[in-house]
Design a protein around this nucleic acid. Structure first.
Lengths: 244, 244
DNA sequence: CGTGCCCTTGAGTACAATCAACGTTCGTGG
DNA sequence: CCACGAACGTTGATTGTACTCAAGGGCACG
């Protein structure tokens, strides 16, 4: 059931059979959500966390005048509200972007397992540290990249993260979001988002539409974006066993 | 020595005498740095982490054309590269903004302590989750707030975080940064930063200069910024003991 | 065959960048 | 003691990026 989560873990660390068994033991319930639902509200006390098995979700911050900012995109394999294990509630909302399937774990089980398996605790901690690294990459995009470069960076990130869990097909991958969603990621208007995407298409870097993206020239896209995948910690620094 | 770190911890959780003793035991070395030094370089393997005792530091991302983005501001009490304990290196640089004093802990000691004291492990994990929450607030500022509101939010955040560790004097606090640094936080030019600060002054919200900030009307500043301190987890959600 | 959602395009506006210059302060050295 | 330079803050003028407003087209769904 949680194979995709294990794939994400094993992209950075070795996971023993025993550890796998333990994780499968606590992530033993499943829940489904429809697209376009707010599934976690900010400030509400939580006593369980969810691992995304299928679909796409986003962290969202709403502002008073109806403005919306997407804070992170979550893909299958992401433990979407693991940080609630230590924070006890979220500072933001979680929304489904597509129909989703989640594995559920109680914080009580997480507590037991992390106390008995400190190395697993570090692997889980690592996952939340990865989210922070992704946030930092987005800060850089919002602050110092042009609209076109910011989108280029976003698509490089998504492609790389989906590759890890085996959810790309060649150069293509699903992306069930509207241009309004993309605008709320990049902090732009929908109109300007549309024009920036057209610029990427015109430059022959990618195709986008119908909930699908196809990267036509990843190297060039990465250059436009100044994309350095180091922040996703797939390299030697995070070789198997290094956090344990 | 690490009193300021304990004050930060105790703003959110109870810390027992035993836990305090353990933390003092491993954070037992001190190191000093001069202002304007890069003290951690991205991608370099680390086997110890540092807790800021005095001064100001920033996480920094440099781009190829010399552009610079500040990713987070760190104050006394912040465990500036604690995430390196699980990540094993950083995806960004750490720079001192002022002369700084740090307490050092080896990852070996962190591993021993977190394995023997799972509740301390969760309190430390919580600190890194807080950093992520701060990143998200910055994403929102960069994406959807006006320049003036973004700065208002920043000053509300710093004031609140410094209050926690007792480093404000009434409505004022030290902020040893140039307007160029502030520009690199907000993703703006130095010129526009200057004008935005003037707008805040003209509105009677604050005074800023000579490395000092004085908030003249916090309520109004918070309103301009849409500042909701929930993301700093000081409320009932994180009442003493709740993460343990 | 409407209706609504999404994408696209054009025209005018506003916020922020760039370029350039100048004042102030402070530390240094003649 | 004063000349000098460097770093920082401030201001004006111009350019450009991105926003807003408005309208129209394609497509799916009832």
């Amino acid at each position: 059931m949680i194979d995709v989560f294990l794939r994400k873990l094993r992209a950075r660390h070795a996971v023993s059979d025993e550890e796998e068994r333990v994780l499968r033991g606590i992530l033993n319930r499943e829940r489904r959500f429809e697209a376009r639902q707010t599934i976690v509200h900010p400030g509400v006390p939580l006593n369980e966390s969810m691992c995304l098995l299928e679909g796409f979700t986003g962290r969202v911050q709403m502002l008073k005048d109806g403005e919306r900012q997407l804070l992170e995109l979550n893909l299958a394999g992401d433990f979407v509200d693991l940080h609630a294990f230590v924070l006890k509630s979220l500072d933001h909302a979680l929304e489904t972007l597509s129909d989703c399937r989640m594995a559920i774990v109680s914080h009580a089980d997480l507590q037991t397992v992390t106390e008995q398996h400190p190395r697993l605790a570090r692997l889980l901690w690592f996952q939340t540290a990865l989210d922070a690294a992704i946030h930092r990459a987005w800060v850089t995009s919002l602050g110092r990249r042009t609209a076109m470069a910011a989108f280029a960076h976003l698509f490089c990130e998504i492609k790389t993260r989906l590759d890890i869990v085996g959810l790309t097909s060649g150069d293509g991958f699903p992306l069930p979001m509207t241009q309004c969603d993309l605008a709320d990621i990049a902090g732009l208007s929908a109109v300007h988002t549309n024009r920036s995407l057209q610029a990427l298409r015109a430059a022959g870097l990618l195709k986008i539409g119908q909930g699908q993206v196809e990267i036509l020239d990843f190297a060039k896209l990465a250059k436009v974006a100044e994309f350095d995948p180091g922040y996703l910690f797939l390299g030697d620094n995070a070789a198997p066993g290094s956090a344990g």
